[in-house]
């Protein structure tokens, strides 16, 4: 478990004093994938660097699994860092070392013997799917492959916490998804706590359990990803959510839809994450005498299920439509009748 109490970092650059992190209190339970989102300069990198003691706080404390990171230094801190590893936006691999040698680097630091290092690096190479590239140099790898090396290297000493500083920001969308899948896989398999920072809501949506929104060094909103998606409070949060879902359909669009689909009944389904939309729709179509047309949809998949809205046109007898709606209700899908034609 990670616990931040009143964590503050002030940079004193000659004349200007800049509060990069401002009294942040957070608790991240073990095994969670915790996201921190914020715009450039919000203090995300500073915050994450405080977690492994690369930066000393001006105030407050960081506790990781009962150890106060801010109170230790020297060999103790170096030992602790082996259990709180980090991956970076620009990978930060040693170009003078091969893939395997890069992965073995933290093991060398930890004083692991040669044979054991070789064995461990082979396992890690397999875990991140880089078999066959052991002797390649970073310059010969794609961005996604480099980040896989970064991840393998970070996992070498069996850390308890993995810190990711914009780990996918230098990658294309497809590679980003692959790397995120790998992180989720690692989180599930190794029970690792992951703290990741990003400015992309897509990343939060795809893998995080909880999210903190940071602005000017402060955490302005915090909660379950799904909850934050559904009920963003702060304006900044709303803007981030809008990155992945267009919000509420206006009266205008409803009227427009009704004109386009004059027959049957328009129903808006709201998925709140505990159910997958596809099996429910399949069942609806199979078991009820209604004709279903998908008119409009905006579904996001989060770690805790689907979130979003789906507008359906249902055609059939009033009786069958009522039964269909009852079925949806029974499966925890909120429905909203948008009007008859």
């Amino acid at each position: 478990m990670i616990e931040l109490k009143g964590l503050t970092k002030v940079f004193d650059t000659g004349k200007a004093r800049l509060t990069a992190v401002d009294h942040v209190d957070l608790r991240v339970p073990a095994g969670e994938i915790f996201g921190i989102i914020g715009y450039s300069g919000a203090g995300k990198s500073t915050l994450i660097r405080l977690l492994n003691g690369l930066e000393k706080p001006s105030e407050g404390s960081v506790e990781i699994n009962g150890q106060n990171i801010t109170a230790i230094s020297g060999p103790k801190l170096r030992k602790a860092r082996q259990k709180v590893s980090m991956i970076f936006q620009h990978f930060n691999l040693l170009w003078s070392r091969t893939v395997r040698e890069n992965i073995e680097f933290p093991l060398e630091i930890a004083g692991v013997g040669k044979e054991e290092r070789r064995k461990r690096s082979a396992e890690l190479i397999e875990l991140v799917g880089l078999e066959g590239r052991e002797t390649a140099y970073p310059a010969q790898l794609s961005g996604g492959q480099k980040q896989r090396v970064g991840i393998a290297r970070a996992l070498a000493n069996d850390p308890e916490v993995l810190l990711c500083d914009e780990a996918t920001s230098a990658l294309d969308p497809q590679t980003t998804d692959a790397i995120l899948d790998l992180l989720v896989d690692i989180n599930k398999r190794l029970g690792l706590t992951i703290v990741l920072i990003t400015h992309e809501m897509h990343v939060i949506r795809k893998i995080c359990h909880r999210v903190a929104v940071m602005e000017d060094g402060r955490v302005v909103e915090l909660g379950e990803v799904l909850h934050v998606f559904q009920h963003p409070k702060e304006n900044i949060t709303k803007r981030f959510v809008a990155q992945v879902t267009e919000t509420e359909d206006s009266a205008e669009t409803v009227r427009h839809l009704r004109e386009q689909y004059p027959e049957g009944q328009l129903v808006k389904l709201i998925f709140v994450g505990d159910q997958a939309e596809q099996p429910i729709l399949t069942q609806l179509i199979r078991e009820y005498q209604v004709e279903v047309n998908i008119v409009h949809g905006n579904i996001s998949h989060t770690q805790r299920g689907a979130y979003g809205t789906l507008i359906l046109q249902l055609k059939g007898t009033a009786d069958e439509i009522a039964k269909a709606l009852a079925f949806l209700g029974a499966h925890d899908v909120q429905t909203e009748v948008m009007g008859n034609a």
Binding site: R81, S85, M86, L93
Partner: peptide, 10 residues
Amino acid sequence: GVIEAARSMG
């Protein structure tokens, strides 16, 4: 960054 990475590894 690589110096930082090495520091982060202890």
